[in-house]
């Protein structure tokens, strides 16, 4: 373990990073694997995840030093270098995300934007889901009756959105699995401090 870690100078993540991370992780798990797509729960959780993502992105501009985008710019060359270090069993400490992890972060965020964006485009205003059930049901019934042309056009547009939403959601689950695998690998190299930084916010052993 490096001197920085031993002396407790490497900090864990701040509360906002932890909150948004675990909140989004929970939504991805529930919406991706457990609940039914298009259900009220699915839509509300999706809005929640989008809110947390938006908050995290704002925090990337105005947040703590390690949380800002400037602390982990996307640098593919550096990421390759870090991957080589990992293969050779060397390690270098990074205050924020390591270069390879940073790329994963941007990939996850990009995919999340696509998933939540298409989801919101399909679900519409969140207030719609608050309307009494009959009205929603009535709207759907209207759709069914109101001529096949309109229905088909809506269906086609909805079909594309749905397709993109599902493909991106599956990609998101694959990325999340890779992310967990990456963390597991780094934990074997560095110890549990790596994970503790995201759970309790303290990463060093001395505190």
């Amino acid at each position: 373990m490096s001197a920085a870690v031993r002396e407790g100078r490497v900090r864990g993540w701040d509360p906002l990073v932890r909150l948004t991370h675990w909140g989004i992780a929970a939504v991805v798990l529930v919406n991706g694997l457990l609940d039914e797509g298009g259900s009220a729960l699915h839509i509300w959780l999706g809005y929640g995840a989008f809110s947390l993502l938006a908050l995290r992105l704002v925090w990337g501009l105005i947040g703590t030093e390690e949380a800002r985008f400037s602390a982990f710019p996307p640098r593919p060359a550096a990421a390759l270098g870090y991957a080589r270090e990992m293969a050779k069993g060397e390690n270098s400490e990074h205050r924020s995300h390591n270069p390879l992890g940073a790329l994963m972060v941007y990939a996850l965020w990009g995919t999340l934007i696509v998933v939540t964006g298409t989801g919101i485009a399909m679900a519409g205003s969140p207030l719609k889901t608050l309307e009494p059930r009959q009205e929603v049901a009535a709207t759907f019934a209207e759709h069914d009756e109101a001529g096949e042309n309109r229905g088909e056009r809506d269906g086609e547009e909805g079909g594309v959105l749905k397709e993109v939403h599902e493909v991106a959601a599956n990609l998101l689950l694959v990325l999340a699995a890779l992310h967990v695998a990456g963390v597991a690998f780094e934990t074997r190299r560095f110890g549990t401090g790596f994970v503790r930084g995201m759970v309790t916010g303290t990463r060093s052993d001395s505190l």
Partner: peptide, 19 residues
């Protein structure tokens, strides 16, 4: 506590902006 409050605020903001 502040982070949790911000999350709630962000949710409300997204809710109203999309509406």
């Amino acid at each position: 506590v502040l982070a949790a409050l911000l999350a709630v605020q962000a949710f409300a903001a997204v809710f109203f902006v999309s509406d």
